[in-house]
């Protein structure tokens, strides 16, 4: 079984985000890390290949400046190889262009039985890239998967819903986006980290993939202003001296909630 996982490489979310004042897009400079949202996909792919008794997990990623640190983390977890699309022409790409690029990268790897992605990235959270990729690739898709099992030529997915979950079947090949917390991503072992250094990463441009980031999709939007939202005034903060609950009761009484 061959599984391809989309892995986004993002600025460390622990650092405060910033907009580039010249382009008004999110700054994506410096060292990037593997988006935690995608570590679940990598783990699930490794488990599915294991359960299938063999196969390969490959990665696709689009990131600026030839960045591979996040890819290396996923390779250290156990993926075999990756395609990195890195191209200054792709700066400021919208979700649709990203999906076209990633779909082309999947094809460069010869396609797969299953393509996994995160439900939403931590820094962009458009949440549309996986479903857009599925459409570009002409594949069926299941979004918001809580669990995935392969059963012959099809998938059995428990798909999270607003009210609970649905059981969904889907023929392979397919694209599936997984939610956080579905599996426990493994920590790369020392051996894994060493091995990852020599695993192949095929670095390509949009042109190499035959994707021209032009047309309506590429020029479909323009940021026109950035303003500060009216901020909420912080109120009273008190230290609990054993009687703080009385304060809460008074506050609720004042609002006539009780």
């Amino acid at each position: 079984m061959k599984v391809i996982v989309c892995v986004k490489q993002i600025p460390d979310p622990a650092l405060p985000g910033e907009l580039d004042p010249s382009t008004n897009t999110l700054k994506r400079e410096g060292k990037l890390i593997l988006d935690e949202s995608d570590s679940y996909g990598v783990e699930m792919a490794l488990q599915l290949v294991d359960a299938a008794g063999g196969g390969e997990v490959a990665l696709v990623s689009m990131a600026p400046n030839g960045e591979v640190s996040g890819l290396r983390t996923a390779l250290a977890m156990g993926a075999a190889q990756g395609v990195l699309v890195s191209d200054p022409e792709l700066a400021g790409s919208d979700a649709l262009t990203t999906a076209k690029v990633l779909a082309a990268a999947v094809q460069r790897l010869g396609g797969a039985d299953l393509v996994l992605a995160g439900t939403e990235s931590s820094d962009g959270y458009t949440g549309t890239v996986p479903e857009q990729m599925a459409e570009v690739l002409g594949l069926p898709s299941v979004t918001f998967a809580k669990s995935v099992a392969v059963d012959g030529g099809s998938l059995k997915v428990n798909r999270q819903t607003e009210a609970g979950y649905d059981e969904v079947t889907c023929p392979l090949p397919a694209v599936v986006s997984v939610t956080a917390g579905v599996v426990e991503p493994r920590y790369p072992s020392f051996k894994g980290i060493m091995a990852a250094k020599s695993k192949p990463v095929d670095t390509v441009t949009a042109g190499d993939l035959g994707v021209t980031p032009t047309g309506w999709a590429a020029a479909g939007q323009q940021i026109t202003s950035v303003t500060q939202a009216p901020s909420r005034e912080a109120g009273e903060v008190i230290e609990d001296d054993g009687e703080a609950h009385v304060k809460i009761v008074e506050f609720l009484e004042g609002l006539k909630v009780i």
């Binding site: 649709l96 890239v129 857009q132 599925a134 999270q160 999709a217």
Partner: peptide, 21 residues
Amino acid sequence: YEGRDVMARLSVKLDRTVITN
């Protein structure tokens, strides 16, 4: 869930960008 999935598929069919959130 549903809104996002329909919008994503349609964006490819129409070759139009999406703006979410």
